[in-house]
């Protein structure tokens, strides 16, 4: 069974006037099909306003499709009775680290999800400890979130989701507001999670360097999926990506530049080592 499946998913935002009449609708997600298998690491790329965040919010039933359907772990998100199961099995981390930490102490925040699920007290403590440990934040358990760096706050947010024991974690531009070091911290935590817990990861971002390890990359533009494939397949199409207001990793750009100058380097180089090896045969 797919972890996440979408079938011709359409979502429209409605703009209303003061009396509540719909004056216009705009389509944020347009006929999107998705098949995400358990344990996959999927990256969704797209410029600001391409519909990628709107799509992400469907995976947690924060939004439900205007038309078409979305299933998370086999459950239809438009069915009211599944909503809490879906939110438990697909956890979500948002962009702004300040606006998703609810409690004034790190460990209490991580416990917030399990509390809502009605987990017995003793087990909450176990889960909190385990989750904080797996993102490397255990030594900050008694700290106030206000005193943490951006990267640390995002790791706390990830721990908060982990404590709900999800099968899948959706990260909606988790690094957009962080500095390079914070970004590294968060990505390291995510990578470790994948190794240890075999959790499905859906990473939404517009930093190209973050997606080179993904199993599958999806590119969105104007609510459509316009490209998909392995990172190598995607990043070998430099010009097309630029058309969608995106970019490629620096190394890929350099390889592309060399190819344009007539050098025989393979397309879709993603890592420094690959390029160096190709050049120093």
């Amino acid at each position: 069974m797919e972890m996440i499946k979408a079938d011709k998913l359409i979502f429209e935002y409605e703009k209303r006037d003061e009396e509540g009449n719909v004056i216009s609708t705009s389509r944020a997600v347009d006929e999107v099909d998705l098949d995400i298998k358990p344990g996959d690491f999927i990256a969704i790329l797209g410029h600001n306003g391409s519909g990628k965040s709107t799509l992400a919010k469907h995976m947690n039933a924060i939004l439900v499709p205007t038309d078409g359907s979305m299933w998370v772990d086999g459950k239809d998100t438009s069915r009211e009775e599944h909503i809490w199961d879906i939110r438990q099995s697909a956890g979500m981390v948002f962009q702004n680290p300040d606006n998703q930490i609810i409690a004034a102490v790190v460990e209490e925040d991580v416990g917030f999800g399990p509390e809502n699920l009605g987990v017995p007290t003793e087990e909450i403590w176990e889960r909190v400890e385990e989750s904080l440990r797996s993102v490397g934040m255990i030594s900050y358990r008694h700290h106030s979130p206000n005193k943490l760096s951006g990267g640390q706050k995002q790791r706390v947010a990830i721990a908060g989701v982990l404590a709900m024991r999800p099968k899948c974690i959706v990260l909606d531009e988790p690094t957009a507001m962080l500095d390079p070091n914070g970004r590294k911290e968060v990505l390291k935590s995510v990578a470790e999670l994948r190794q240890k817990e075999n959790i499905t990861v859906i990473l939404i971002t517009h930093y190209m360097e973050e997606v080179v390890d993904a199993d599958h990359v999806i590119v969105m533009d104007h609510g459509h999926i316009v490209m998909q494939g392995t990172p190598r397949e995607i990043f070998s199409q430099v010009e097309e990506l630029k058309r969608y207001r995106l970019d490629v990793p620096q190394v890929t750009l350099l390889a592309d530049e060399l190819r344009k100058r007539g050098l025989d380097v393979p397309a879709g180089i993603l890592k420094k080592e690959e390029l160096v090896n190709a050049l120093c045969r």
Binding site: W84, Q88, F112, E115, T121
Partner: peptide, 25 residues
């Protein structure tokens, strides 16, 4: 904006009022 974000984050973590909640402490 913060209130809106926070409400969404709380819902995403299954918050649905006091009923059925357990306590960590």
């Amino acid at each position: 904006r913060r209130a809106n974000d926070l409400a969404m984050a709380m819902e995403a973590r299954c918050y649905r009022g006091g009923a059925g909640r357990t306590k960590m402490k």
